[in-house]
């Protein structure tokens, strides 16, 4: 990674860390983990299931909200506030700026997820009093959640490269929801016929397949995650993110900063 990309990424990370909204979200996520403990205590024999389900869902949702909330402003805020002028008048290429912003936000989310994950594991320890071998799969679920964040950040960045922050948020959130239901969409595409079937198949494969990255229920039940799924999901998330970032770069290269 070039030093300029690293500098932009670090500055993006620093901005997020100094942003009080981020702290509030972390605090809220920790509160939710607390709630998970409470629910775990009132559930009989399924404390682990409830804590893992609720905790990981909270990590995922809060991370997605942060990814969308910051992601849509990554470039547009810099244009609007004109902070970009003094950056792009230096030997920084536009693609380096976009990629740096992306890494900065994903870095923020990784750190954020790390702290939220600690909350989930503390909650698990609280209800089960000890860690079990199957708890390791929770780490895989967390890894998949981080892959989701990569894709959401990339999509938010892509939409914000040509749209207003509000519309970018709407588009990104809509894609997150549709992508989370993509397995159902693919199922429908398999049974649909004719033009409808063709359109359903196209949409099903175009939208991000977030449902393949959701193994929360599986790990909550203590089921293993196949190694092949980890590999495929990693490749898929990286390729999808790279494509969205490339799209953002292509649009941003041609954009006039009025």
């Amino acid at each position: 990674m070039s030093s300029r990309i690293a500098s932009v990424a670090f500055n993006t990370f620093r901005e997020a860390v100094r942003d009080r909204v981020l702290y509030n979200l972390i605090a809220f996520a920790l509160l939710l983990s607390g709630a998970a403990i409470l629910v775990g205590q009132v559930s009989i024999d399924i404390e682990r299931l409830v804590v893992v389900n609720l905790g990981l869902t909270a990590v995922s949702l809060f991370g997605v909200v942060i990814a969308i909330f910051i992601g849509i402003g990554l470039v547009s805020k810099e244009i609007e506030k004109r902070t970009l002028y003094t950056v792009l008048s230096r030997p920084v290429r536009r693609w380096e700026f976009v990629v740096g912003k992306f890494f900065g936000l994903t870095g923020t989310l990784v750190v954020n997820t790390f702290f939220m994950a600690i909350g989930v594991f503390l909650a698990l320890l609280y209800v089960a009093h000890k860690f079990e071998k199957m708890d390791a799969w929770v780490l895989v679920a967390l890894y998949f959640i981080v892959l989701q964040f990569l894709m959401v950040c990339a999509l938010a960045l892509f939409f914000s490269s040509f749209s207003t922050p509000l519309m970018s948020a709407v588009f990104t959130f809509a894609l997150f929801v549709i992508g989370s239901l993509s397995e159902d969409l693919r199922g429908f595409a398999r049974i649909a016929q004719g033009l409808g079937g063709w359109i359903a198949t196209s949409i099903a494969y175009l939208v991000p397949n977030f449902s393949a990255l959701n193994v929360i229920n599986q790990v909550a039940h203590g089921d293993a995650v196949p190694g092949r799924l980890i590999l495929y999901n990693s490749i898929y998330a990286l390729l999808y993110s790279a494509m969205a970032i490339s799209g953002a770069v292509l649009i941003f290269q041609r954009r006039n900063l009025k």
Binding site: V8, R14, R82, T86, P91, V92
Partner: peptide, 23 residues
């Protein structure tokens, strides 16, 4: 730039260090 606006969460020193890195 005209009426410049900079990253207001940074100190003057941090801002110049950042621009120094980029340059």
């Amino acid at each position: 730039p005209e009426q410049p606006y900079f990253y207001d969460y940074l100190t003057a020193q941090e801002l110049l260090e950042y621009y120094g890195q980029l340059s």
